[in-house]
């Protein structure tokens, strides 16, 4: 069984109020390392056996159509062993 991971992030120019809220909360807890925080989504898709090139292309298509909104988000697809 293989796991295909799709990471979705807001484009850098899109305001991310959730990330900003996290960045503001960190120093209140004594964590002073963060210059900025962006929050995204991660999808884990399990498939039978090793993914074929065609399956990965289908995942790309699904990510572009449903998992991410290309108007405001970018995504990456990778296989995790």
């Amino acid at each position: 069984m293989a796991k295909i991971v799709v990471d979705v992030m807001l484009k850098p120019e899109i305001l991310d109020p959730q990330g900003t809220a996290v960045a503001a909360a960190l120093p209140r807890l004594g964590f002073s390392f963060a210059q900025s925080v962006r929050q995204g989504k991660r999808f884990e898709i399990e498939i039978e056996g090793e993914p074929t090139v065609e399956q990965l292309a289908q995942v790309e298509k699904a990510a572009e159509t449903l998992l991410a909104n290309p108007v405001i988000e970018t995504f990456t697809v990778r296989v995790e062993k």
């Binding site: 807001l10 305001l15 109020p17 959730q18 809220a21 909104n69 108007v71 405001i72």
Partner: peptide
């Protein structure tokens, strides 16, 4: 989302 109109609606700036 259906691309009938451009742009997108995102989380209110003050959350």
């Amino acid at each position: 989302e259906a691309h009938l109109l451009p742009g997108a609606l995102t989380r209110n700036s003050e959350l």
